[in-house]
Structures are given as structure tokens and as C-alpha cells.
Amino acid sequence: MKNNALLIFTRNLELGKVKTRLAKTIGDEKALKTYKDLLLHTMKVTQSLDYDKFVFYDKTIDYNDLWAGFSYKERLQSGADVGVRMQDAFQQLFELGYQNCIIIGSDLFDLQDSHINEAFSKLKYNVDVIGPAEDGGYYLLGLKKVIPSLFKNKNWGTAAVLSDTMKDLENYKMEFTETLNDSDTFEDLEKSSYYKTLKSNLNNG
């Protein structure tokens, strides 16, 4: 019986289409380079994890990118907004027979494999697990079943997402993982453990 599945949401690498808030400070080309680094970090953190792993692209599946040659199954996001797309992705995996599903984004230089392992461990005894982000959203969501209200009536990308999600989970057994910092703005990057490397790359790029 299939048990654990890790879902990784990514954006296709398109100039001017990724890290748009960051690009307002450092420009489109450096924002694209930063997102490439974020994807590489996410891959390095997850590639050795002993779960079935699925990469969900936002527009088209790229069979020749950095995920190729590793144990990632590639799928396409579907839906008008991120809530619909996440719900659809979860539903796909539960229909395949997985019992515990965790979704993460690809925006965190501070994410480590220990955060994901901890979340799967906690999901054994809870209906859901959340990894809060410092900006008021979340970087990780683990579920044992689809809870439709989690994906509806949310102002995605705002500081209200986590608090609104918590209201939907009042009657469910849940736990949290460590609060981490998304890398959406230049101020976010300055807080990141990866900032020194990024600063060097950006200065030389």
C-alpha cells in the first residue's frame, strides 16, 4: 500500500514570470537566477528523501530540467488559482492510494530535509500538519485527506492566509513545524541563511 507522497510546487523558469516581487529590487534576470538557485536547493534537500516525490509545474512539464534523472514524477498544476491547484494535486495523490501527502513550495533557502521528515512523522498522528511562514502564509501543508475549505476563500500571497487556514482547522487534530522565511522579497533574502552566497552570486551575475 502506498503511504507517503511529497508534492513540490514549482514555476517554470521564465524571465519576468518568477519572483516578481523580488525582481522589483534586483531586476528580472537576477530574480530568475535566484529562483534557479531556489529550485536547486529544493532538489538537493528532497532528492534523498525516501518518499514518492512529485514535481508539479505551473505551465508546462520540462522533461530536461534539473529534476530529470532523479526519482521525481512530473505532473502539471491545474486550476485558476493556487488554492484550486493545490486541492487538485492533493486529490490526484489520494486517488492513487497515498495515505499521507505533504506539499511544499520552492521558495525557501532555509528548508531542510529534517523539516519534511518531522512533518511526515507528525502526520502519522494528526489529520494535518502546517509549516508556518514568517510572512503569514505557510510553506508546508500535510494532509491525510482533502479538506476543501482549506483551498477556498483565501487571499493567496497575503499575511492572512495562515490565520484564515487555522480557522478552517479548528475541529481537526493538527501540529506545526518550525516557522521559516519565504524568499519572496529582497528583505526576505537578507534574512536567509543563504544570503551571503546569494549576495556574491548577484554581485557577480
Rank of each mutant, 00 (worst) to 15 (best):
K19P: 01
K19V: 04
K19T: 10
K19A: 15
K19F: 02
K19S: 15
T20Y: 02
T20L: 12
T20R: 12
T20A: 09
R21H: 11
R21I: 02
R21N: 15
R21S: 14
R21M: 11
R21P: 02
R21C: 03
R21K: 13
L22D: 04
L22R: 00
L22Q: 03
L22I: 04
A23V: 02
A23T: 03
A23E: 06
K24V: 06
K24S: 13
T25F: 04
T25G: 00
T25A: 07
I26M: 04
I26C: 05
I26S: 03
G27Q: 05
G27F: 04
G27C: 05
G27P: 03
G27I: 01
D28I: 00
D28N: 14
D28V: 00
D28F: 02
E29I: 05
E29D: 11
E29H: 08
E29P: 01
K30C: 06
K30S: 06
A31C: 02
A31T: 01
A31K: 00
A31I: 01
L32Y: 00
L32Q: 03
L32S: 00
K33Y: 12
K33L: 15
K33I: 09
T34F: 05
T34D: 04
T34A: 06
T34E: 02
T34M: 03
Y35K: 05
Y35Q: 05
Y35L: 04
Y35P: 04
K36Q: 14
K36G: 01
K36Y: 05
K36R: 14
K36T: 07
D37W: 15
D37N: 12
D37V: 00
L38Y: 09
L38Q: 11
L38H: 08
L38F: 08
L39D: 05
L39G: 03
L39T: 01
L39I: 09
L39E: 07
L40W: 09
L40I: 04
L40P: 01
L40Y: 11
L40S: 13
L40A: 12
L40R: 13
H41F: 06
H41C: 07
H41G: 06
T42M: 10
T42P: 12
T42S: 15
T42W: 07
M43L: 15
M43A: 12
M43V: 11
M43Y: 12
K44M: 14
K44Q: 13
K44P: 02
K44W: 01
K44Y: 05
V45T: 11
V45F: 00
T46F: 02
T46E: 06
T46W: 00
T46H: 05
T46S: 13
T46C: 15
Q47D: 13
Q47G: 04
S48F: 11
S48P: 04
S48M: 11
L49I: 11
L49K: 07
L49R: 07
D50L: 13
D50Q: 14
D50Y: 07
D50M: 10
D50P: 05
D50V: 07
D50A: 11
Y51W: 14
Y51K: 09
Y51E: 09
D52Q: 14
D52P: 09
D52N: 15
D52I: 11
K53I: 14
K53M: 13
K53L: 13
K53T: 12
K53C: 13
K53V: 14
K53Y: 08
F54Q: 09
F54L: 12
F54M: 10
F54S: 09
F54C: 10
V55W: 08
V55I: 15
V55R: 12
F56R: 11
F56E: 08
F56M: 13
F56N: 09
F56W: 11
F56D: 08
